[in-house]
Structures are given as C-alpha cells and as structure tokens.
C-alpha cells in the first residue's frame, strides 16, 4: 500500500464541494419526467373534454330522447337517434360473454395453478398470454367464418329444447349473426385476460395458507375453497371487471358478426343486435358531420361506462392492497 502515498503538498487543497445545491442535469431530467407524467393526465382529460365538446352539436340537434330511442338517423332532418338498442346490445353481449368466460377462466386458471404438472403449467401459461394478444380482427374473422357455421346445431337444439325460456326461442328459424354468437366470440376473447389475472392471484396465495389447509386433512378442492378463494376473491372480481371492460369496448369482432339492427330483441339466437363500439366502426365512413358527432356522443357513453367499470376494478384492487398490507 506504500504506492498509495501521495505528495504532501496537496494536503492543503480544500475539498471541492461547492456548487449549485441542485444540479442542472437533475433539474432538467426531473422536469422531463414530471412533464411526461403530467402529459398522461392531460391526455386523459383531453379525451373527456374533446368527446364532450364534439358530441354537443348532435345532442342539441337531436329531436328524440338520446337514451331511450332505438333507431339511428342522425343525418336526417330533423335528426333522430338514440342509444337504447346500442346499450342493450352492448350489455347483453358482454353479460353473456361473462357468464361463459368467468367460470371457464377461473377453472382454467385453477388448473394451471394447482392441477397441471409444473413444467406443462409454464408452457400453458405462456400460450394463454400469447392468445391474450391475438388481435380482435382474427377473433372476428374466425367467429364469422368458422364458429358461426358450426353453431347451428347448438342454437337449434337450444330453440328445440330450451325454447320455452324466451331468450332461447328463435321465431325466425335463422341462426346466424346473432348476439349469442357474438357473445361466444367475446367470451373466447376475454378468456385469456380473465385466466391470466386470476392465475396470478392464485399463485400469490401464500403457500403457508394452502399447506395449513392440507395439513388439516382437506381434500384439494376443500383446500381451494378454504385457502385459495377467500384470499383471491378481490383479485378474481377485479379480473372479471377488467375482462368486462374489454368485452364492453370490443369493436371489430362484434362488428363483423352482428347484423347491426337497431332494435331490442330478446331472442339472442336470432340475427340482430348492435353495440356502441361496433356501430361507430360500421357507421363511421357513411356519416355526415352530424352523424359523426352522434357517433362521438355514443362513444362518450361507452367511455363513461368503461371508466366506471375500470375504476371499480381498480378500487377493489386498491382496497385489497391496503388489506393485505396491514396483514403482512
């Protein structure tokens, strides 16, 4: 260490510590980060502002009730258009999709988390993730070209044997382009989302909880019921909400399958139905200025609905975060 010695004359030099308390580079960089973050807020605000602003002309010109009218003639004189049929179609397709996708998604997630062999589980989880990214146009094409012709049997059977329940009745004898088919396609689309989120919360269940249940002599299903479900319920709910948000806002797959009629028809296996998003895509290029404004107005309603759904989901997650934080 003798080599470390240094001539003594430098000892007199004072420490070089003066300078600006905050460096310019720091100020600039922090500013960039801050403005990027604020930019995100501004964009969110701008979306709301512009949708409201641009929908005002059509809403003020509308001669019928926007919320209860079913037809869509915004470019007529006087303009008559309403979202009743769109809202019906949107919620109907989303709810049926949820009824199908939630149990299957949870079951598939349970399978991957607790039943499948470890090695296989990772691969299947990856495949599920990839499928979550398959573009919706492909689901639409597949639904239109492959699923629809292969669903005649099921929908016919539903009419024959379950027809006494009004929604399964088919008075037209035509089984294509229906809300039911669109719902099945939507269900398959949101399955990976649903499954991926619930799988994640399942794998977060502390092993100690699960082992405690097993050590009490629980069967595997009892273990899931007493240790896994209570712990992951908020995660499952918020996963379902996020999937619902996706189903409500899905455009292309639905636009390809539905036959776009502006009527409320409870017979879900008959052709018909329309949704907010699909209607925007289908009417976009054939609308005049007032028509575009009317579509923006319907988009605003969709925006508000999905915001509410998403915020509820986030709120459930946030509440859960506090909850688990206090416990660990």
């Amino acid at each position: 260490m003798a080599t470390l010695t240094r001539p003594p004359e430098d000892d007199a030099a004072p420490a070089e510590i003066e300078g600006s308390a905050v460096r310019r580079g720091d100020r600039v960089f922090r500013g960039l980060a801050l403005y990027a973050g604020i930019g995100v807020l501004v964009v969110m605000g701008a979306i709301a502002v512009f949708l409201v602003w641009r929908s005002i002309p059509s809403l003020t010109s509308n001669s019928v009730n926007f919320f209860t009218y079913q037809e869509w003639f915004p470019d007529d004189n006087p303009p008559t258009f309403g979202i009743a049929a769109l809202a019906f179609g949107t919620f109907m397709t989303a709810i049926i999709a949820m009824i199908i996708a939630v149990p299957i998604g949870i079951g598939a997630a349970l399978f991957i988390a607790y039943y499948a062999p470890r090695r296989l589980a990772a691969t299947m989880a990856f495949i599920m993730d990839v499928l979550a990214a398959v573009p919706s146009i492909i689901f639409g094409l597949w639904g239109l070209q492959f699923l629809m012709p292969n669903m005649f049997g099921l929908t016919e059977w539903m009419n024959d044997y379950l027809g006494f329940i009004p929604i399964f009745e088919n008075t037209q004898g035509i089984y294509t382009k229906s809300i039911f088919i669109a719902s099945v396609v939507l269900a398959i689309m949101i399955l990976p989302t649903m499954s991926a989120i619930t799988r994640e919360v399942f794998t977060q269940v502390p092993q100690a909880h699960r082992e405690a249940a097993l050590a009490l002599g629980a069967t595997r299903w009892e273990m899931i019921r007493v240790a896994v479900f209570p712990f992951s319920r908020p995660g499952m709910i918020s996963g379902a909400m996020l999937a619902l948000g996706r189903a409500l806002g899905e455009t292309i797959a639905v636009a390809l399958i539905l036959s776009a009629l502006f009527t409320i028809n409870w017979h879900i296996t008959e052709p018909g139905g329309n949704t907010f998003a699909a209607n925007i895509a289908l009417k976009w290029n054939e609308s005049g200025p007032n028509g575009l404004s009317a579509l923006v107005a319907s988009g605003l309603v969709l925006f508000v609905i999905t915001m509410v759904v998403n915020m509820t989901a986030r709120w459930i997650i946030a509440r859960r975060a506090e909850f688990s934080g206090a416990n660990s």
Partner: peptide, 15 residues
C-alpha cells in the same frame, strides 16, 4: 394510467 389501460381502442381513435 391504470384507467387508461382499460380505454376501449375505438375511443382512442375517436379522440
């Protein structure tokens, strides 16, 4: 940012 994740893609186009 979380809420933005859930914005339907068609709304982005509308905006």
């Amino acid at each position: 940012v979380d809420v933005m994740t859930g914005i339907p893609s068609i709304i982005a186009g509308l905006f």
